[in-house]
Nucleic acid binder design. Structure first.
Length: 481
RNA sequence: GGCCCCAUCGUCUAGUCAGGUCUAGGACACCAGGUUUUCAUCCUGGCAACACGGGUUCGAAUCCCGUUGGGGUCACCA
């Protein structure tokens, strides 16, 4: 049988990392099986849904390289893919349920329901609809429906139990008396999630529902709907919820949840994908850095573990550095430029100097930050230098640096080895440790005690400018008297 | 609170279904050492976990029960 997977986000905010997480699994499973991955926009909440959010979700998934095969933007055989455009379909099906006695119209006002809920809570009783409209005579119900606003509710048979199988947890059984008469059709004619979800998943031929575990409690309602409609439910696989450090469901307050944030921070999409793949799933090999093709080859939803993974950005940073190091300089330069992290650098210039920075980068903005000294004189870190050359004779250091400046100029263009030898000799001449001389040069040229290789930096800068920086440092080294 | 889900190093996890090969493996982070003119990379080593209590069994991280802990959910939001 064909595999059809789906993700069904609601366009009510920035594209969420949880959507990316669930999409990745659904996308990969469809890819592995030569199936289809559908993105359905659940915009039945008319107040909160916004077109720009829908666009952002589509763009974010495309950026991650896990774009759906069918979506509002890519038509397919089972559209439309926006629930707001499927109103008639839901209406038809709720009518069917009313006709078959599986659902009923409810005329209770929101105010009454709020009061009911408040009362139940105060009395420490389980909350839920009290069934006032359950037994309104069908004819009377139809008549009142002409003029009165109403919703349609699922008529739950409160006896017995409902059972379903979760691919990751096995059988889950719930007493029907704990299942509420869920609203299926809202008073504005839009379906609720539960109704739309079941109808769409069936009509769209979805074979496996992989979604977050927060949905488990509502599965019995869905199962009842499948049964009432005479349909076979698909396979359910509820994946763990991504967590904050305190184990609560990942939230904006405690974690970056917008996919856009990761893009803006200079994370590579392949790093985020690799990282997300490691949440709840693991590769047998020791190397946890892998490409998406490998993931597709190995991924099977039944291997997902169910403990809620705490989001750890440190691991993402590591993965991002790994991915950056794997790119060739031309590609990395493109990523830097296209991502808007060039900081005024021309693309070709980036390609030229990138070897100095690539293995030191964790994120894309690191380049412009670390390469600043190549475009402007940065304030040398005199305190840092002082700590590093504490034991060196200041007079000797100044003398050696002054001569070193001249060496840099006179030996410009010569091989690194030759220049290094000359500088080493200089250090010896002044009775300095080689490291101390180099540290002085380093701080002079790059401004910092930790930097990319010295000589290549000098070459990029030009011998004259480098020498000038060294002489400037010598000036600063004169003790205040 | 009712209902439901979950429980291995600080974090992500392997092992659990088919009990012994687990004195519990890997990765990130951290610490130490090596390489390097610094940093980074790279290499080597180290620290560190089966929530607790019963039971079943010759034998339990693995099976069962309970406790504790964590999470989710109880909307005309998804």
């Amino acid at each position: 049988m064909d595999v059809v997977t789906r993700v069904a986000p609601s366009p009510t905010g920035d594209p969420h990392v949880g959507t990316a997480y669930v999409s990745l699994f659904n996308w990969a499973w469809a890819r592995r099986n030569g199936g289809r991955f559908i993105l359905r926009i659940e915009d039945t909440d008319r107040a909160r849904s916004k077109p720009e959010h829908e666009t952002a979700i589509l763009d974010a998934l495309a950026w991650l390289g896990i774009a759906p095969d069918e979506s509002p933007a890519v038509d397919g055989p089972v559209g439309p893919y926006r629930q707001s455009e499927r109103r008639e379909i839901y209406r038809e099906h709720t009518d069917r349920l009313i006709a078959s006695g599986h659902a009923y119209r409810c005329f209770c006002t929101p105010e009454r329901l709020a009061e009911l809920r408040a009362f139940q809570k105060a009395a420490k009783r389980p909350t839920g609809y009290d069934g006032t409209c359950r037994d309104v005579d069908p004819e009377e119900s139809a008549r009142r429906a002409e003029t009165e606003t109403h919703v349609v509710r699922l008529k739950v048979d409160k006896s017995g139990t409902t059972r379903f199988t979760d691919l990751l947890r096995g059988d889950i059984v719930i007493e029907n008396e704990n299942v509420d008469d869920q609203v299926l059709l809202k008073s504005d004619g839009m379906p609720t999630y539960h109704m739309a979800n079941v109808v769409d998943d069936h009509l769209m031929g979805v074979t496996i529902i992989m979604r977050a575990e927060e949905w488990i409690p509502s599965v019995p309602k869905h199962v009842m709907l499948y049964e009432a409609l005479g349909w076979e439910p698909p396979v359910f696989a509820h994946v763990p919820l991504l967590r904050n450090k305190d184990k609560s469901k990942i939230s904006k307050r405690k974690n970056p949840t917008s996919i856009l944030w990761y893009k803006d921070e200079g994370y590579l999409p392949e790093a985020l994908v690799n990282f997300l793949a490691l949440q709840g799933w693991s590769i047998k090999e020791d190397d946890e850095e892998f490409d998406v093709e490998t993931f597709i080859e190995r991924f099977d939803p039944k291997d997902i573990s169910v403990g809620g993974p705490v989001f750890d950005l440190q691991k993402l940073d590591w993965l991002n550095g790994e991915k950056i190091r794997k790119l060739d300089t031309a590609t990395l330069a493109d990523r830097i430029v296209d991502g808007g992290f060039a900081g005024g650098w021309e693309r070709d210039a980036i390609v030229r100097v990138l070897p100095l920075f690539q293995e030191r980068m964790k994120r894309l903005p690191d380049f412009a930050e670390a390469a600043r000294y190549l475009r402007e004189r940065v304030e040398p870190d005199m305190d840092g230098l002082a700590k590093k050359v504490k034991k060196a004779d200041p007079e000797a250091l100044r003398g050696a640096l002054t001569k070193a400046a001249a060496v840099l100029e006179s030996m410009a263009g010569q091989p690194d080895e030759a220049r290094e030898d000359a500088l080493r000799a200089l250090a010896e001449e002044f009775g300095l440790k080689v490291g101390n001389l180099f540290m002085g040069l380093r701080v002079a040229v790059t401004g910092a005690t930790a930097s990319p290789p010295l000589l290549p930096s000098v070459d990029e800068l030009g011998a004259e400018e480098s020498a000038a920086r060294v002489r400037d440092l010598v000036e600063r080294l004169v003790p205040a008297s």
